[in-house]
């Protein structure tokens, strides 16, 4: 009898231990996930009107510095609460993620050659110019140069030998 009682006790403890070893149960709060590190000074950035627009940057401060976008949209996602926001300016687009009651930069990409990367690369540049800025190691052998730093990524896409898109994003997953 005592052995059986001990078995039951061990069973309950096993369930308890197994349960406690798991991460916190998933919830459905937030759309773009809260994986960012708001205010990270090492995140990729570009400069516009003297303001550094940086991944994980505070969007409210950016808006104060560079003004309102020409277009603004909000995106929801299936089942999840919270809003991802997209700010479209003449030469670039910024997408944010919500964290607490603030929005932070999750992604930005360039639309024309009026903005450039800190290394001086812009849309329309040749493959050679990109290679000079980021080296051959960043080339994927097909159509893009991709660099990574911490959980950030920069992608330069080439089409017909010239830069067609420049994108920066927080890498999640």
């Amino acid at each position: 009898m005592k052995r059986w009682m001990a078995f039951l006790l061990v069973l309950c403890m096993a369930v308890g231990f197994a349960a406690c070893s798991t991460p916190e149960a998933p919830t459905t709060d937030g759309t773009t996930p809260n994986v960012g590190n708001p205010g990270d000074p090492n995140a990729y950035y570009f400069t516009h009107k003297g303001t550094d627009i940086r991944l994980n940057g505070d969007m409210e401060a950016i808006l104060k510095a560079i003004g309102e976008p020409k277009k603004y949209t909000e995106e929801t996602s299936c089942a999840f609460t919270g809003l991802d926001k997209t700010y479209t300016y003449d030469s670039f687009v910024i997408q944010t993620y919500p964290k607490g009651d603030k929005d932070y930069v999750y992604m930005f990409w360039f639309l024309d050659d009026m903005v450039e990367t800190p290394e001086g690369v812009k849309i329309g540049d040749t493959q050679a110019a990109v290679e000079a800025a980021y080296g051959t190691d960043a080339y994927n052998g097909k159509n893009a140069f991709i660099t990574k730093k911490d959980n950030y990524s920069m992608t330069v896409i080439l089409k017909d030998g010239v830069v067609s898109s420049i994108q920066y994003t927080i890498v999640i997953g």
């Binding site: 991460p23 998933p26 459905t28 773009t32 996930p33 089942a79 999840f80 997953g173």
Partner: peptide, 16 residues
């Protein structure tokens, strides 16, 4: 599953 992005969110979707 990794290609969907955030894995915590992915798991929440999996559960659903």
């Amino acid at each position: 599953p990794q290609s969907t992005g955030d894995q915590t969110q992915r798991e929440a979707y999996n559960r659903m």
